[in-house]
Simulated scan of single mutants.
Amino acid sequence: MIDRHLAKLRARDTISAEEEAVIRQSFGEVRVVPAGTTCIRAGERLTFSTLLLDGFMCRYKDLPGGERQITEVHTAGDFLDLHSFSLKQLDHNIMALTASRVVLMPHTALTAITEHHPHLARVYWFLTALDAAIHREWVLSLGRRTAIERIAHLVCELRVRLGLVDQADDSGFDLPLTQTDLSDCTGLTPVHVNRTLRDLRERGLMEFRSKRVTIHDMAGLIALAEFDDNYLYLRREAR
C-alpha cells in the first residue's frame, strides 16, 4: 500500500527492513477523496498526517475573492502535511485535484518514531525540508521565470518526481489536471496557459492533451526551463 512512499525514501537514504516494518505499522485509516474535495482546511486542528497513495493533490491558499494559488502539487508517495505534526494545524488548504486515496498516520505514531527511531525521525525531518525546497523553487518561478519557462519547469519537476515511482519517463507521463489547475500552479490565466502550451507544442518540445504530457525533446525542455534538479535532493546518502 505504501510502496511508492518507501521508494521515494529509498531513493534518498537506506531504509532497513526493521524501519520499513515500523513505517508500515504506523499507518492506519485509508480514505478515498473525490476530485475537487478540500480534505484539510487552514486552521483545522490535526491529530494525524496524511500520505497520498494514489492520485494528484495540492496545497493551496486563496483570497477572499476566491482567487487560488497552488503552492505545491503532490504525487503518490508524498506526505501532504507532515509538517502538521509539529504545527498542529496548517496555514493553507489541501485539495484533491483528481480522485485520490490517502492513508493516515496518527501523530501519536509519529511521536513514537521520533522517540524510538532517530534515523527515521531524521528522514521525516528531511521530507519537510524537501517540501520547503520545492516551495522556494516555485516562488522563484512565480517571481522571475517567464510563462513558458514556468510551465516547462513544472513539467520537468513532475517528470522527475513521478519517475521515482515509475509513473514517468522521458517520453512523458499522465497528468489528469485541467488548464485551470495549471494556471493556479503557475500564476497565469487559463488563456495564457493555453497559448503557452501551444508555443511549447509548436517548438517541438512537448504536448499536453487528453490528460497526458508527451515529451518530444526532454533535453530541449530542460534547457528552456534551465532546470536543475539539485533542489529535489536526489542523492542517496545517510541522513
Results as ranks from 00 to 15, higher is better:
Thr47Arg: 02
Thr114Leu: 15
Pro106His: 01
Arg101Gly: 09
Ile113Tyr: 04
Leu51Thr: 08
Arg68Glu: 11
Leu164Gln: 09
Ile134Trp: 08
Thr108Cys: 04
His107Gly: 01
Leu104His: 06
Leu90Lys: 04
Val102Trp: 08
Gly43Lys: 03
His153Ser: 12
Pro118His: 14
Asp78Gly: 08
Leu97Ile: 06
His116Ser: 15
Ser141Met: 15
Leu154Pro: 04
His117Phe: 11
Leu82Asn: 05
Asn93Ile: 03
Met57Ile: 04
His135Met: 14
Gly163Tyr: 00
Pro64Met: 08
Thr111Trp: 10
Ala132Thr: 11
Val102Lys: 02
Thr98Arg: 05
Glu157Met: 07
Arg150Val: 02
Asp78Glu: 12
His74Leu: 12
Ala133Gly: 11
Gln69Ser: 14
Ile94Lys: 04
Thr146Met: 09
Ala109Asn: 10
Leu97Ala: 10
Glu67Arg: 13
Ile94Cys: 14
His116Pro: 09
Trp138Val: 15
Phe79Ser: 02
Ser49Arg: 03
Asp62Ala: 08
Ile151Lys: 01
Lys61His: 07
Phe85Ser: 00
Val123Cys: 11
Arg144His: 13
Leu53Thr: 02
Glu149Cys: 11
Arg59Asn: 09
Leu80Pro: 07
His153Asp: 12
Val123Asn: 09
Arg45Pro: 11
Leu142Gln: 10
Leu162Ser: 02
Leu140Arg: 15
Ala112Gln: 11
Ala129Lys: 15
Leu80Val: 13
Ala129Ser: 13
Arg144Leu: 08
Asp81His: 03
Glu67Asp: 14
Leu130Tyr: 01
Asp62Pro: 00
Leu87Asp: 09
Leu164Trp: 00
Gly143Ala: 15
Gly77Thr: 08
Phe56Ala: 13
Ser49Met: 09
Pro118Gly: 08
Val103Leu: 01
Arg161Gly: 00
Arg159Phe: 07
